[in-house]
Design a protein around this nucleic acid. Sequence first.
DNA 1: AAAGTGGATATATCTAGGCAAAAGGGAAGG
DNA 2: CCTTCCCTTTTGCCTAGATATATCCACTTT
Lengths: 229, 229
Amino acid sequence: MAIGYKELKADILQRIVQGYWPPGSLLPGEVELAEQHGCARATVNRAMRELADDGIVERRRKAGTRVRMAPMRQARFDIPIIRKEVEAIGATYRYALLSRDEVNVPDWLCGRLGVSRGESVLHVECMHYADHTPYQHEDRWIDISVLPAARTADFSAVGPNEWLVAAVPFSTVEMSFRSTAADRVLAAHLDCAEGAPLFQAERSTWWEEQAITFVRLTYREGYRMTTRY
Amino acid sequence: MAIGYKELKADILQRIVQGYWPPGSLLPGEVELAEQHGCARATVNRAMRELADDGIVERRRKAGTRVRMAPMRQARFDIPIIRKEVEAIGATYRYALLSRDEVNVPDWLCGRLGVSRGESVLHVECMHYADHTPYQHEDRWIDISVLPAARTADFSAVGPNEWLVAAVPFSTVEMSFRSTAADRVLAAHLDCAEGAPLFQAERSTWWEEQAITFVRLTYREGYRMTTRY
DNA sequence: AAAGTGGATATATCTAGGCAAAAGGGAAGG
DNA sequence: CCTTCCCTTTTGCCTAGATATATCCACTTT
């Protein structure tokens, strides 16, 4: 009669999927489920908590556990190292540094990085290729007052992304995705027409309330970001 | 002396972030950590398991727990119900049905829905507005052989998305995001120039290995999907 | 040298019980 | 009728102990 939390989780999910517990309905309490399945409440708790983590159910003290109304409320995307992503599709990865300058922080970046005007930042532009076709353009800004080591780092062989991953851990990340039209520079680098619709990801990274880096990644035309579950 | 699993998790993460336990290094065993912190082993286990779930550490029986070398982190996006999303920004939500036809499945959709050519599908087009400005265009296809109830559903007041959520218990979902140029129809509906770069989401939904619906959501120009973690 | 075996060990999971905290729901008072 | 306060329910979290399982490593066998 006693079962493990995985089986229990599968059981409950099965019943939800088959409509026995329709969206919005209230599930039995932990004690009751534990008695029904002949296991400890902790086991039920583990199963229910994982279902909640997966976004299947919603739990609130006193209110109980109920099936979520929306079939999918959250999606999870892996943010891989670009090299891995390219190699995963069976292509050869190549990296190229385009430019590297120490400049005054532009106004539009002040707010995002949380630095004051007039400060100096490191600006690195580079390209990532899959089998010699453009894959991604990387436009990165690093706050050198927070990360002075970046000033002496050599980005000609290894990309700033991989360098940063190895050099600094991060605590908070904000990402956003949008669609943008290729300007002249991007069109040239990504080998597409000017005005072509491109998928763009922007990421700000903080460590201990200190902004470290902001990066704008522009993917080749036609790129898709996909998730399934 | 005794602490909760959240504090413990934060403690361990802190030490990893600060380099006390560098990437690749072996962490103490659960028993040892429990003794050091004066708590039960289950508490340590919970903290460590969550760190593993978050992709910070890697755990293997007998081998112990070690800090991951390349933390391939994953982002989690909330995909809100369109009405909630609009109302969250303080705007008034409005819905409009554009068209609704029963047609032969187009070739490009056969593969995605997993239906054979010549079959009949329900095609629904509608718009979602925020304060009377276009917010999202919904282009939906429903397999009526799997979901015959859709044939008699009235989509003039409630959108197909909300109808489906209530009608279909639960499912497997595949989503993908990309950038596309506005064609004449989309430009007209979304009030933008033809060729404008638009953010597009596509979602296929299955239930018990049966494809139910495919939807293509095109957002207004300038839309951003953002997450923070 | 290569392959198989078994013990040691670290994590995975379960049990049984208890206290804490949040919050729904109703009672009491204005 | 409405608001405020309290009680009870339900999940959250912890302890302490035990079994299960995977797997590294050393040792033995072929």
